[in-house]
Each structure stands twice: as C-alpha cells, then as structure tokens.
Simulated assay, not measured.
Amino acid sequence: MRSGQMWTAAGWRAAELVFGETIQEMKETEDAGKDYLIPGLIDVHVHGGGGHDTMDGEEGIRGLARFHARHGTTTLLPTTITNPQEHIMAALRAVQEVRDRPGPQEAAVVGAHLEGPFLNPTRLGAQPPFAALPTASAVDELLSTGVVRVVTLAPEMEGAWQAAETFTRAGVRVSLGHTQGRAEDAQGVIDAVLALGGVVGGTHLFNAMTGLSGREPGVVGALLAEPLAYAELILDLQHVHPHSALSAIRAKPQRTLLITDAMRAAGLPDGTYDLGGQSVEVVGAEARLAPGSSNPGSLAGSVLTMDGALRGAVTCGLTLHEAVRLASAVPAAYLGLSDRGALTPGLRADLVVLDSALRVQQVYLGGQALY
C-alpha cells in the first residue's frame, strides 16, 4: 500500500492505493502526505541509456530497460537505428527475446520501434548513412520477427504508401519522420493508414521533418491538422522551443506523447560515445555528432530520461497533471495498452512515487518495488 496525491484523469486525489501485481483498491484519505503517486511512464522511442544501446543485442536492451526503470519508465519500446538490414534483424530478435523472457528490475519491453532504414537520406540527422527504400521483401522480413510496434518512415520515399499499408495491416503504428516531404506526401500516408483503421503519428515532432509556415504546411502542418494523428515530443529543452511544444500540445492535448529518444550516454558523464557506429560528443544536456561523422554538429538523440521529460514539460508551462498524461496515459492509448497508463483497479500496478521536486522516490513494476 502507498499513499499520496494520486493522479487520476479527472485530477489529483489524496488517497491510499492497495495493490499486488495489479491495482486492487483506491481509498481516499485526509493524511495521504505530499508525495505524488503517478502511473508508470511509457517511452515509445528510446535507443539506450546507462551505457547500453538497443543495437548491442539482448544484454544492451536489458541494461537500458533497467536504467530507465530507475527513472520511472515502466514500459518502453527499444528503438533501432538505421543500419544494414541484417544488423536491424539481429536487434529485433534480441527485442523478441527480452519481451518473451522479462528479467528482474527491467521496464516491460512490449515491442520495438523501428526507426530506419526507411528514411529520407537527406534528413537522417544523427542516423548512419544506411537509408533504404521500403521494398516489400524488406518489410516482410522485418515483420516476421513479430516485435515491431512502431515504424518511422519518410512518406515521400518510393514505396512508402504501400509499406505503410503493410505495416498497418500487421498492427504496427506508422510514424512519419526523417522526411523532406510535403504536407501532401504526409496526408497521403495518413489517409492510407486511417482508411485501414490504423494508428498514425509523427516521430519527434519538429525535428528532422519539414516545418509549418503560412504557405508551406510541411509534415508538421499535416500532423497538427489531422485530429487522429499522434505526435512525439522531446522535451529536453534542446530539441524543441517551449512555445513550439506548447503549440503542439494545445493543438493535440490527447494525442501528444513525451519521449526521450535517449542514447547510451543518458545517465553518464560528459564525453564521447557511440551511436550506430558514429561518435557523439555529450556536453551537459546536449548530444551532438562529433567532427568527422556523416552530419557533424547534428543533435544526436538525447540524454533525457522520462522523469526529466516530466520536469521539462512543467518548465515549458504545463501542469504536472498535464505532463503525466502525456507521459503515461497518451502513450498507453497510442500503443493500445489498455492494462496500464492509469491508476485504476484491475490495471497493472505500474506505479511511480515522486517527491515535491518531482524526483523519483520509488518505482513499482507490476507491484514489485524496484529498490
């Protein structure tokens, strides 16, 4: 049992929460204390952390899942990076192994986010130069692993519409990103996905995509204009200006989700680290490709954690209640995870305890205390 100021969809309630593996009961109380009780945070886009990376294989995935669990993430999608197909397949098989054999103190791995290789080679950002067209054979091989939950693709690339339809039929969320496309390119894929009853979104909104202006709405404009589209945001105060972030959130309060896009350097000291075979220099809260890389100076993911994303959202002007919704309830809805994302009897007891400074005090993974 834990007591505190408990997050509900309607607001905060002073309560005691009784739980085992699932939440059993919520009782209102006057002496709940000042800690915040919030549902476990869900990160749908995370490459690494604590020195580990998805592309490292099973041990790397388990390591990043343990690291991010300590920062309040109870569910995540290990995210690949643009590489030759055989390397991506090896990473997906490792995700499958971790998903099917979860270990202690690991955030739940419910699938993978396939970020690349189906990207525009002119908008790779920090992705290595292995962009490829989404051919039917490549898509089928990737889907054969059964773990792809989200795919990022550039809608203007040859075969993108057909690939989006194939992914949608397989139950995969199609997320537009790393794109030089026009609003019309984005709208075509959005319409194709929605016509099949699928789910569509945008990968790290504003970053590595065409922006919104009065006469050229770009991919950003297409995503903001479509009420059913979701949108990821990196709120490390490096990737997106607070005003831009608030514009997206106010346009899509129920469809914007916080992500980390974290690389292996998250949680480690400043220095030089590897990301997909490229060197990244980390100074403070900023990670950029090192000189000599394919796109030197480009932002290279982040060193963010989901509890840091909450604090970033509050710094941008959101209430804590709003921030928790974007970090838990919305990503749960995006992934179709009806058993988490709220503190409701019958759901998984994925629970995070925060103090008044929004620092993680305790994490429960399926009712088990992390530390």
Rank of each mutant, 00 (worst) to 15 (best):
M1D: 12
G4C: 06
Q5W: 14
R13G: 10
E16L: 14
G20Y: 08
E21K: 14
Q24S: 13
M26I: 15
M26G: 11
T29F: 07
T29Y: 06
E30Y: 10
P39R: 05
V44D: 10
V44C: 15
H45Q: 05
G48Q: 09
G49Y: 01
G50P: 02
E58T: 14
E59I: 04
I61P: 03
I61G: 05
G63E: 03
L64R: 07
R66E: 07
H71W: 10
T73A: 02
T74H: 05
P78V: 12
I81N: 00
N83K: 14
N83L: 15
Q85Y: 04
Q85N: 04
A90F: 09
A90R: 11
A91R: 05
A94K: 11
V95E: 14
Q96K: 15
Q96H: 14
E97N: 14
V98C: 04
D100F: 08
G103R: 00
Q105P: 08
E115D: 02
G116P: 01
P128C: 02
P134F: 03
P134R: 05
A136M: 08
A138Y: 09
V139W: 02
L142K: 08
V147Q: 12
V148L: 13
V148I: 11
V150Y: 10
V151F: 00
E156F: 03
E158V: 15
E158G: 14
R169S: 12
R169N: 11
R173S: 06
R173P: 03
G177Y: 01
G177A: 04
R182D: 14
E184G: 08
G188Q: 13
D191P: 14
D191G: 12
A192S: 13
A195M: 10
G197E: 15
G198K: 10
V200Q: 08
H204M: 01
N207V: 00
S213V: 10
A222W: 11
L223H: 06
E226F: 09
A229S: 04
E232M: 03
I234S: 00
D236K: 02
L237Q: 11
V240Y: 00
H243C: 07
S244A: 07
S244K: 07
A248C: 01
I249L: 08
I249V: 13
R250K: 13
R250N: 15
Q254S: 11
L257A: 03
L257D: 01
T260C: 06
R264K: 14
A265W: 04
A265L: 07
A266K: 08
G267V: 08
G267D: 04
L268K: 03
L268G: 05
P269T: 01
T272M: 12
S279W: 12
G284P: 01
G284M: 00
R288Q: 09
R288F: 04
R288G: 07
L289C: 03
A290Y: 12
A290L: 12
G297Y: 01
L299V: 00
A300H: 01
G308E: 13
R311W: 13
G312Y: 05
A313F: 06
G317C: 06
E322P: 09
A323H: 12
V324Q: 10
V324A: 07
L326C: 05
A327Y: 09
A333D: 14
A333R: 15
Y334A: 07
L337H: 05
T344R: 07
A349D: 07
L351V: 13
S356T: 08
A357F: 12
A357C: 12
L358F: 14
Q362C: 06
L365E: 06
G367M: 09
